[in-house]
Amino acid sequence: MKNFLHSANFSNRMISGMLILLFGIVFLLDNFNVSMPHWLFSWSTFLLAAGVVVGIRKNFQGNAWLAMVFTGGYFTLSAITEFDLSSYFFPLAMITLGLYFILKQPLRHKAQLG
């Protein structure tokens, strides 16, 4: 029998609960007029966090989490810094895609597993 602490249900609840708690603390601090960075409440930061959560839940398998992390990270980094990232986006995307194809584990078919 699986230990409750190692079950997928507990892990999903823990991650979801920690994110909701974190967002609640951030919004409470914002209501108390504690200075928060403007980029913290942007769609790109939310997309970045959602990509990390999806990656954790899927054990970083698949590509959806990677697309969300890169898109959210690009726009969040652009909001944080005044550095113009647009001229570097395409070369960095190509380098990242090349590394992904090189380092990606080959898919195993069900016939090979058995």
Rank of each mutant, 00 (worst) to 15 (best):
K104C: 02
W43R: 00
A8F: 05
F10L: 04
Q105T: 13
L66D: 03
M18L: 10
S11V: 01
F101C: 11
L99D: 06
F83L: 07
V26A: 13
G62Y: 08
L22E: 01
W43V: 04
N9D: 07
N3A: 03
A64C: 08
L5R: 07
F4G: 00
Q112C: 09
I25E: 15
P37T: 08
F41R: 05
Q105Y: 11
S78L: 13
A8Y: 01
M18N: 05
Q105L: 08
A8P: 00
L40V: 08
M36I: 07
K58V: 04
K58Y: 03
L103S: 15
T76E: 12
N63C: 09
F23W: 08
A79L: 13
H38D: 13
G72P: 09
Q61V: 09
M18W: 03
L113M: 08
F10P: 02
L29D: 14
F75V: 11
Q61K: 13
F75G: 07
F46T: 03
F89K: 04
Y88P: 13
H6V: 07
N9V: 07
M1F: 12
Y74V: 03
E82M: 14
K110S: 13
S78E: 15
Q61Y: 08
W39T: 05
L97Q: 00
S87T: 15
F75Y: 14
G62L: 01
D30S: 15
M68L: 12
F23C: 10
P37F: 15
A111P: 08
N12C: 07
L21M: 14
M36R: 06
N33Y: 09
L92A: 10
H38P: 11
N31P: 06
F32Q: 12
S16I: 01
P37N: 12
I95Q: 02
V69T: 06
S86L: 13
R13P: 00
L85G: 05
M94A: 09
A111V: 14
G51V: 03
S86P: 05
K58R: 02
L28F: 15
L113N: 08
L40R: 04
G114E: 15
L77E: 12
L107C: 10
N3W: 00
F90A: 12
F23E: 10
T45W: 01
F83G: 02
F89M: 07
A93E: 00
A8H: 00
T76H: 05
G62P: 13
S87C: 07
M94L: 11
N9Y: 01
L22Q: 15
Q61M: 08
F89C: 04
F83K: 03
I80E: 14
F27N: 12
F27M: 08
Y100R: 10
G73R: 09
G55F: 05
K2W: 01
S44R: 03
P91G: 04
A8L: 06
S86W: 10
G24R: 02
L48D: 02
Y88G: 09
E82F: 15
V54M: 07
A79N: 11
W65I: 04
I25C: 15
L28R: 02
L107M: 07
S86T: 13
F41M: 02
I102L: 15
